[in-house]
Nucleic acid binder design. Structure first.
Lengths: 122, 122
DNA sequence: CAGCATCCATTCAGATACTG
DNA sequence: CAGTATCTGAATGGATGCTG
């Protein structure tokens, strides 16, 4: 009977954290934080490209030819806001902006792997 | 130099599978499969409730009071289609339907844990 | 009890055109 | 090159009312 916090019922497979009990999809829930970072079409594919290394806007557009400029810009801004990647604007002309994952962004690797594993087996 | 398949470049953190190279968000990508199963507001919270055990429609509605009947029914249908849970309609009156996770549904535990972990640390 | 049908507001993706 | 602005259509979420 050790390992069981007094006054708690067992919650199989879930962290012993008050945020595991939220009754609504609040932004403070860690699961929501991650899903918000990955939300939207194309997002995981952009992250996948950057897991392979630094990329410019054009390189990302070439790797994902069916992705429009607008949505790519949207996704990059979203991922930057989430702390997943950083912009690196190079001065001069023509302008070059490259994108690379932050340490936090690299830690999405295991998350994508978990998503992959479930979908690959089922 | 062992461990490296001939003719492949290294893809850090990504499976050595052709589906890891898709150029668009196709339904055949395992990551998309999982994200499709978890898509939509409230979905992960419904799964969380069922990770704790079998629940009826009403019990789920009580655990998530801000979730409308329509969306709850939508989510349950979506999760059933994805093979995450099974409906158990009890005959007689009043009707009772309970929901429980399939083995596959239980395997979402580690996926939610990975999402949690990233969002909790960052 | 466990839902489905209908309607409405909001969000989202994509297309097109334009710019520092 | 690397975006922004604007518009349109599709998908989504939520409210309300009805039914086997």
């Amino acid at each position: 009977m050790a390992h069981q916090t007094v006054g708690h019922v067992v919650r199989p497979g879930l962290p012993d954290d008050p945020r595991a009990d939220v009754a609504a999809p609040t932004p403070s829930c860690p699961v929501e934080v991650t899903l918000a970072a990955l939300r939207g079409r194309w997002t995981t594919l952009v992250v996948r490209e950057l897991l392979r290394g630094e990329r410019t806007f054009t390189e990302l557009a070439q790797a994902l030819p069916a992705l429009s400029d607008k949505v790519l810009a949207d996704r990059l801004a979203q991922l930057a806001r989430s702390g997943v990647l950083v912009r690196d604007r190079r001065p001069g002309f023509p302008p070059r902006t490259s994108y690379r994952l932050t340490p936090q962004g690299h830690r999405l690797g295991p998350v994508l792997q978990a998503l992959w594993d479930w979908g690959a087996e089922g």
